[in-house]
Amino acid sequence: MSGVAPMQAIAGLEPADLRWRIDVDVLVVEFRGRRHTPAHMAGCWRAVQGLAAERGLVKVLAIDLMDDDPLTGEQRAAFIRQLGMDVFAGRRWAYVARSVDRVGAYEATQLDAQEQGLDARVFSSLAEAELWVRFPG
Rank of each mutant, 00 (worst) to 15 (best):
F123K: 08
F79T: 04
D101M: 00
A39G: 08
S99I: 04
L65I: 05
D68L: 10
H36Y: 11
M41I: 10
F88Q: 13
L118C: 10
S125P: 04
A113C: 15
A105G: 02
D112Q: 15
V122C: 09
R76H: 08
S99R: 06
L126W: 05
Q75W: 01
P38F: 02
L65K: 13
R121H: 14
I63T: 14
P38M: 05
G56I: 08
T109H: 05
D86T: 15
D101F: 00
G84L: 05
D67Y: 02
D68Q: 08
A62T: 15
T109M: 09
G50R: 02
A77Y: 00
L65T: 12
L65Y: 05
H36Q: 10
D69R: 06
I63E: 13
F88E: 09
W45T: 11
Q49H: 12
T37R: 08
G33C: 03
R121A: 11
V103T: 08
Q75V: 02
A52M: 09
H36I: 00
R32M: 06
L126Y: 09
R55S: 09
H40M: 07
Y106P: 07
Q116L: 15
R121W: 09
I80F: 01
L83Y: 03
R102F: 05
G50F: 00
K59P: 07
Q75P: 01
D64N: 14
D64S: 11
M41T: 12
D101Q: 00
D119R: 12
V100L: 00
D68K: 12
H36C: 01
A53T: 12
W93E: 11
M85R: 11
R55N: 15
Q75T: 02
E107I: 14
M85A: 14
P38Y: 00
F79N: 03
H36V: 06
R92I: 13
H40K: 07
R92S: 10
F123S: 08
P38Q: 02
L65S: 10
R55C: 09
Q82E: 12
A77T: 08
G43M: 04
R102N: 04
R121N: 08
A127Q: 06
P70S: 06
D119M: 13
G50T: 04
P38N: 01
I63A: 12
E115S: 15
A108R: 10
T109L: 11
G104L: 06
S124G: 10
K59W: 01
A108E: 12
Q110W: 03
